[in-house]
Amino acid sequence: MMKPYLKLLSFVKVNNSLSKLNEIFNQVNTLVKNFKVVNITISIKYKVNNIVIYLDQPELYQAFINSIKKLNPIPIIDGPNKAIKENSSTLKSRVNNSPILEYRVKILSGYSIVGRKTVEFGNKCTAGFWVRQQGLAYLTTAGHCAANGTLVPHESVRFYFIEPVTEKIKFFGNMTRFSIEPVDRGFILPSDGYSESPFIYSKGLKAPLFAIADFTRTPVSFAEGAILCRSGSVTGYSCGEVTSVKVKTVFFLIGYGKINYEDLTEVSKTRGEVGDSGSPVFSFSNPLNYGTGVNLFGMMVGGFQINNTILFLPLYKILNSDMNVITIQD
């Protein structure tokens, strides 16, 4: 039945899927906002299987261009093109310093999040903290939260957050990179309409409780008995005492198998449950004044309910050299 139409069809092998192009499109749009670029048009061009950026005055935005060149695939940068602006089916444009008016929902550390391949199934976890890398903001959580979250190996995993109070489940971004071993970490790129926040949510108060004022990215030799706290989406906010560092252990994850961990820090007298993975772990910058904010040390990756103990992964294992935690100083 198809033979009369074969001459009308043209099949070309491409390197970038539509899903990948949409992902890069969203990254470019985020960079436009971060670098406050104006007189620019972003377009998905199927003929060249890439993102094409039309920039009127590229000499004014070298930092923006340098960040664009770090994306994969690298978008094509060109001068203004009226025909493209009028005909592109996927288009965003800023002209003459006109502001982009939009309402963005902030995703807080401590929120309940779910990585899913279908609406029915997913791993419930906790939003850890936000990082910035090459001009883009990512929400960090445990990488095992994305386990079994995709039907295709190495594909992005859709993530949802559970809205406090209403309990509504809403899509907010894709985990574009994650690993489970040797380092259990994942980075979620937010979609349009969602953005970063340096505040930590309290399940008990149903409100932001602490602000991330600083972070420690180098290895820390905690003294035994040092007080550290965390805020999980299941068990809420609590504090405990450091009992061991450089811990090695093995956990079993349904659908994945054994996970071998090392260089974890053990904190006792604080419990964690399924769904608390990713919880930010921190101490108070000034124990006598909570209003000064907290110092972030890492995120929870597991725990033992039987003896009220959690294990957390320190920041030096999580952050790349070009990553920084987003704090209230930003």
Rank of each mutant, 00 (worst) to 15 (best):
M300S: 14
L31N: 03
M175P: 01
Y201S: 11
F210W: 12
R104L: 13
R94P: 01
Y5L: 07
A63T: 11
T235R: 03
G293L: 11
G79T: 09
D78G: 01
N320P: 01
S156N: 13
D263R: 07
I77V: 08
E155Y: 15
L319A: 03
T150Y: 03
K13C: 09
N148C: 10
T176Q: 09
P80Q: 14
Y261I: 00
V183H: 02
G257S: 03
T118P: 04
F178W: 14
M323Q: 15
Y316H: 15
G232K: 04
S19T: 10
R230A: 13
K117R: 11
G255V: 04
T41M: 04
V12F: 10
L55V: 01
L228P: 04
S19N: 15
G122P: 02
N308K: 15
H154Y: 09
P182H: 08
E23Y: 05
E224V: 14
S10K: 08
N72A: 00
C125H: 04
D263Y: 11
T327I: 07
N81M: 06
S233L: 04
R132M: 14
S156R: 08
L6Q: 07
V37R: 00
Y256A: 01
L319M: 07
V12N: 12
G293E: 13
S195V: 08
T235H: 01
F312P: 03
N97V: 02
Y256M: 03
S89G: 13
L55I: 01
E224Y: 15
V301A: 05
L315G: 05
S88T: 10
G143M: 09
I180R: 02
Y160D: 05
